[in-house]
Amino acid sequence: MIKKLMLLLMFGFIFLYALTATAPLADSFPETSIGETVIHRGYDETASKNLVAAILLDYRLFDSIFEAGILLISAAGVLYMSRSSGFSKPFPRAKEAAVPKDSDSILAVSRILYPFMLLFGFYIIVFGDLSPGGGFQGGVILATARLISVYIPEKASENTDPLNRLEKILFLCLLSLGLISLFTRGAPFTNFFSGSVDPEFRRLFLVLLNLLIGLKVSSGLTIIFIRFIKEGK
């Protein structure tokens, strides 16, 4: 009890300190910031109308590639852990609760929703540089669509190896796509078209990147989902 009280007291002090420290931040913006410069020059430099995508896919592409890399490692780690050999299992299951059979309405709704979710996911990915969205968001939608297809018996496949390979290959493609500009423009991790090309052409790079990221993220998340479903069985 005293321990918790002490904790709360410390929190009180840290809270007050943080409040006084963040209060001056509320009104004064710095004179120049990365974000402001991006708002002014973003479209001319990256040909992306969505400026968040401009940062993700051009200015800080190196970060985005490693962000995709985190998911890759996580999928590989989940896959490694859930392989049946290795761990001993003295306590296989909490309680033998009766697993209810999936109802027919879920099946029917999943069947109707599945193609639309795929379409929506691809829409979000391909139009990521024009409207809110992008590879990561669209990839998650695609993975959710794959998750819903678990309810559809004839679609359900539990083999994650091809997906796993696909994910790693896509990551390599992503890396090499980012490096092409080193040879065409002399600067790594940016658009491979130079700034003088028509923006409609330069968009190609963004769409390609979004597609690669979207597919990679969706396959990574799908691996994780399928492995978790398998653990539950």
Binding site: I34, G35, G42, K49, I55, L130
Partner: peptide, 22 residues
């Protein structure tokens, strides 16, 4: 929103949004 077509008033900083996706 920091999207060129809808830039009416003052756009919010796009960088935090990009970092938060990560």
């Amino acid at each position: 929103a920091p999207i060129i077509t809808s830039l009416g008033g003052e756009a919010v900083d796009p960088l935090p949004q990009a970092l938060m996706i990560t």
